[in-house]
């Protein structure tokens, strides 16, 4: 294993997240009750996804400048693992919502919930990225087209998950600002687990991505130069 220290950090932070996430005291909230602990799991999926997508688009831009297939391999694998984390975030969100929002909101309100729709749109745009890649056989063309597309896909994240859900009426907490990093809203008891949890889950995402990248680099060794 190359450069092990950050992998050890990842393991320690995740174990701390589980132990602290279940056992530490949490602030009392109406409706949410103990489910506030999902903050350490559900929200972290989205944070990890954002980091992975951001890295992906950086490598996409790098590919367009360098035309080096290595950058394409980095970009696509960060996007793929980002999608996995996004799907996990979405799935956990539906479970959480179905036990909390349903206590006071009507199903119509839930179906037109902007945060859900926005996240669905964002994920679908990224699904289309995979479809687009799969449909082109020429390696260089595939890399170029998908790099350009991934910039569009990344830009679509801004309105669909960062801007619109915060402008519209929403059941999802935190529309008055950044839901995760609002220092006034977040109890200190949550923060001591939440921030390490974000780092831990993100590192796990990066770790899995790095494995996929190394495998792809090995597979494509004969067409990579330099």
């Amino acid at each position: 294993m190359r450069k092990t220290w950050w992998k050890i950090v990842c393991i320690i932070l995740l174990i701390y997240t589980v132990v602290g996430g279940f056992l530490f005291s949490v602030p009392a909230r109406e409706i949410l009750h103990e489910t506030i602990r999902n903050l350490y799991f559900h929200v972290c999926m989205w944070m990890a996804m954002m980091v992975l997508f951001t890295t992906s688009v950086i490598y996409a831009i790098r590919y367009l400048r360098s035309q080096n297939l290595k950058d394409d391999i980095y970009s696509v694998n960060f996007a793929k693992v980002g999608i996995v984390f996004g799907v996990l975030g979405y799935a956990t969100g539906t479970v959480w919502a179905s036990y909390t929002w349903t206590e006071y909101a009507t199903s119509t309100q839930i179906f037109k919930e902007p945060k859900l729709l926005g996240a669905a749109i964002a994920l679908l745009v990224y699904f289309a990225y995979l479809v687009l890649r799969g449909s082109i056989t020429d390696v260089d063309k595939k890399a170029k087209v998908s790099a350009v597309y991934s910039i569009f896909a990344y830009i679509m994240l801004f309105p669909s998950i960062w801007i619109l859900p915060r402008l519209l009426e929403s059941l999802h907490p935190g529309k008055e600002g950044n839901p995760a990093l609002n220092f006034n809203d977040l109890d200190g008891r949550l923060r001591i687990v939440f921030y390490p949890a974000i780092i831990g889950w993100t590192l796990l995402g990066v770790w899995i991505t790095s494995l996929k990248i190394r495998l792809d680099l090995l597979k494509n060794k004969n067409i990579l130069h330099g």
Partner: peptide, 26 residues
Amino acid sequence: YSLLLLLSLPATVLAQADDAQKKYTA
């Protein structure tokens, strides 16, 4: 060693068990 360190952390951060705490959290 880091596992040992983690496990030796106090299991709960001390917090006042006020009425709201009792009502909304288990």
